[in-house]
Design a protein around this nucleic acid. Structure first.
Lengths: 217, 217, 217, 217
DNA sequence: GATGAATGAGTTTTCATTCAT
DNA sequence: CATGAATGAAAACTCATTCAT
């Protein structure tokens, strides 16, 4: 499974980038992730990419479009891919439990982000500011992510594995926690990856909370 | 208990702001929270505040200093206040449980943020970008927040209320979840407040997770 | 009678220009008239006016608005002024003939243009290109100039002085000829003024054409 | 008689244009006439012509030369053609009067311009700005147009048809009026053509002016 | 003959900042 | 204390032009 975003786009969209065009992409992602979109000038991108500013604008028209050209394909790749590949096989698996699903899901997404950490940082940093981005992002989220995860939660809830509160509450709590966890690691703390141990802690927390269970003592 | 930040600063620091100075502060917070620091020009602040740009620079010297002047007192108020006032009385309270502590803590912080939502948004949005801000923020976090919360967790863990994993892991999971929850509400979704019902869901999730307990059936 | 446009505006609109602001106006008119709007850069204006480019944009916002700020008041002054002052006294004059009216009109407008030749050139050169300008110009033309001249022509036609064709045809022929004459002198040939002799030739031509009258021999 | 400029050039100069080259010419004329030379980029021409920008520069070297390549042949065709073909037969005609000459001249030139309105617009719009163009244009005007028309006027003046003022004054008044009339129609008002009725009005005006003749009543 | 890729030198415009009054 | 006026520096963006293929 290849989680590198740009290889994916490359093969998917058959875009042939010249060496210089690729350098623009690389420099933009790096600088945007380090300093933020607003604090990065096209002059700086041109310098780092060792191309002329004109080349950037020839290709992308505006700086804003450059940002979108980096992020939108990433968004469109980020969520759909989570299911088509790994998820279906989990659920068909014999010993499939919600815990197993959660573990697979987390590892899959963490792997994906680890391979494209910088662009993930750009996405998170800019989605706060740009309504434009939210509008690209939210439909994908509502139409693809939420129904998909809802399906899983419903399934496991029917099997009696999950607590007896409405699915949308479970979803919201899960989403809040997991995204908070991932964002604080990759964006705030700028960690390279998340260890298996940390993943297990998260799963443990999500499943059973922090209260000492009565059966423990 | 008055959680309005600026009243606090006003009384604490005895700064007497003229009407115009107050308008600068108000305009800055509003604009920074809406569009971000980088995307707000001093000309725009001056226009909204109905003062001259020169007045802003007379007061604050640089635009950067204006931002810090808004945020730093907020940071310094945000965390210390959580203990000095409400927390100590919780712990001394008769029926003090971790759940009770968590409830009081959440309600207290949510109330604080609700009263100063815009500046909270500014803080969150800018702390991602500005190393300068992280440097202001992290010491406070490490020196004041962490020890304080650690003390509480240790206390309740000793009482056997909490799961038997290292305190710093509990702290990290708690922090990740709670901050994720609060940030996604107040910044991403731009909600006005968080309802009691939502707080109870969070507490429930944090304490017991989402797994159906064996005693439920 | 003071035909200098900017003195008129100055007194009319009570705009107080600083020395530098006046230099911007002067430099713009000069350069626009010499090289055309499109071929004049704001950098060049700044250099000639010995101000910073920023000062130009501080005042006018855009280069386009700079052009309009020069031309629109000129348009609004050009046509109305032709009647309020000189024309009414002509018509009330004892020996008022159409020829006399034409002579007064031509001399009045030629004097006005001579005093502001450069901005007249800018107006003519740019009105060809800018729909924006046409929209400023045409209403004034239709609402103020045409009715006014029509009134005069109708008056003299009633007196039996003018040829028996529809007023609007007379107007159109007159306008076409006179504007053609003035534009070719001041814009194409860049003459400083138009001599009395030339004015008399024009009047002669307009009144009687170029055919040798039967009474001449 | 074929007045389409490019067919004329084609046959006259035996230039074989490829389809793409012709598209460049068409696009340039269209865009230059709509927006003016300065406001039309070579990129835009290339896009409209559906060729690469490089092809334009391969052909014409510079954008300036592209403009000249369009206009200069037009100038060289515009004036000479007025005599070689139609004019000589007019004068040799039995009932030749100045009025007849004027009518033939006007109709001939109006037909010519109507068939190439866009390039006529380009010529007029750019001759105002470009000294270069004036230098191309004026010699032709002085060496070919003026002597030719002077010859006609002198002829008809000798026959006693025209008013008794110097020939150059008649020429100037005629030129001013006719060019003013044509330019205002085709460039300012962007009319498609000029009707026979309008032509007759012009002739009437030019010949006899607007004064009611004493023999009319 | 045609073009995709690339750019140097501009262009308009923005912006934080200074200073005399 | 307040500000109108002014700006250097840099921002985003444009454009005519070149050149290897």
């Amino acid at each position: 499974m290849n989680n590198n975003l740009f290889n994916e786009i490359l093969s998917a969209q058959s875009i042939k980038r010249t060496v210089k065009q690729q350098r623009i992409v690389d420099a933009s992602i790096r600088l945007f992730s380090e300093k933020g979109y607003s604090n990065t000038s096209t002059a700086e991108i041109a310098k780092v990419a060792e191309v002329s500013e004109a080349s950037i604008f020839k290709q992308y028209g505006t700086k804003d479009n450059l940002l979108l050209s980096l992020i939108v394909p990433y968004i469109k790749e980020f969520f759909p891919s989570l299911a088509n590949e790994a998820m279906d096989q989990i659920i068909s698996n014999a010993d499939s439990t919600f815990e197993g699903f959660l573990r697979a899901f987390l590892k899959n997404r963490i792997e994906f982000i680890t391979g494209n950490k910088e662009i993930f940082q750009v996405l998170i940093k800019e989605i706060i500011y740009k309504e434009e981005l939210k509008k690209e992002f939210l439909p994908y989220f509502h139409e693809i992510v939420i129904p998909r995860i809802t399906k899983f939660i419903a399934l496991f809830k029917e099997r009696g594995e999950l607590i007896d509160i409405p699915i949308d509450k479970i979803l919201k709590l899960l989403f809040t926690f997991i995204s908070g966890f991932i964002v604080s690691h990759f964006v705030l703390l700028n960690k390279e990856s998340i260890s298996n141990e940390e993943v297990e802690d998260v799963i443990c927390f999500v499943m059973d909370g922090i209260r000492k269970s009565s059966s423990d003592h």
